[in-house]
């Protein structure tokens, strides 16, 4: 029971790591992840790759349309497409 309390599976570690990319992991979850990170090579590789992806997205300063904007463009486009098909 105690062991389960302190140690997490690789799947749990992945989940916490994913949440941590969006600042949604709690301090306790991060501690558990770090404990596994210390001894598990696969966890370390996953964390590093995941962080690299987050850094890339941040550096690229990507922009995208929000759902409302996309819906609006799609609606206008569909109208135009229907006209064209007539």
């Amino acid at each position: 029971m105690k062991k389960r309390f302190l140690f997490i599976s690789f799947k749990e570690a992945q989940h916490i790591c994913d949440k941590a990319q969006y600042d949604e992991a709690t301090g306790w979850e991060k501690t558990k992840l770090m404990m596994r990170y210390a001894w598990c090579r696969i966890t370390r590789a996953y964390v590093q790759r995941n962080s690299k992806l987050s850094d890339s997205v941040k550096t690229s300063k990507l922009n995208c349309l929000n759902a409302t904007e996309r819906h609006h463009i799609k609606a206008q486009f569909d109208k135009e497409l229907t006209k064209q098909e007539r």
């Binding site: 922009n63 995208c64 996309r70």
Partner: peptide, 19 residues
């Protein structure tokens, strides 16, 4: 195939434009 233009390319084109 214009049917999937908005889903596939709208964000890419938007990002290209806003920059």
């Amino acid at each position: 195939n214009p049917d999937h233009w908005i889903d596939r390319y709208s964000d890419y084109l938007f990002n290209f434009t806003i920059s």
